[in-house]
Amino acid sequence: MNTRKIFVVVAAAAGMLTLGVVLPASAAPGDTAATLTVSGGSLSITVPAAAALGAWTNVVGGGTISGPLGQVEVSDARSAAAGAGWVATVISTAFTPTGNPAIAASLVSYTAGPITKTGTATYTANDPSDLTGVTPAVTATAITGDNSATWNPTIHVHIAGGTAAGSYLATITHSVA
């Protein structure tokens, strides 16, 4: 009985040694899982600037104003063999003026334009026609190793005839995971 107990303790200690286990210093009570340090790189996305679409003069029947959002670059230096590539999504709020009806995000569309790439990967632009919900904008597939994609998206806002004059503001979010 005693010998069996000793054997278990020795085995556990040997296991800890061979695995090189590091217990996190900040382990909370109940935290049982040991962790290892990961040496992979980061997934990153361009820090954006505010964008302007210019001015629009109302027309009968409405029309569309288009403008670039500025360059978006996604770069993936993680261990690409591990995961499922990455998906960059886009979503917009409504264009909201002060005191007037807003222009709904369903009237905002997105085109990625040409995608410049480094590394081996296939990038697919989805060019969503409605930015109300989270929608894939660019998807990376067939990746070998580190890769990056750069595109210069343009958004198109449909403005109905008779839209009230004013300054309209929207928030557009690019997410990558």
């Binding site: 505010a50 964008a51 302007a52 004013g166 929207a170 557009i172 979010t173």
Partner: peptide, 22 residues
């Protein structure tokens, strides 16, 4: 998510938000 956003604009346009996630 880790999120950052462009500075607010005073008079219309687009505020841009970038997020990268695990």
């Amino acid at each position: 998510w880790a999120e950052t956003r462009s500075a607010p604009t005073a008079s219309g346009g687009v505020i841009q938000v970038s997020r990268v996630g695990i």
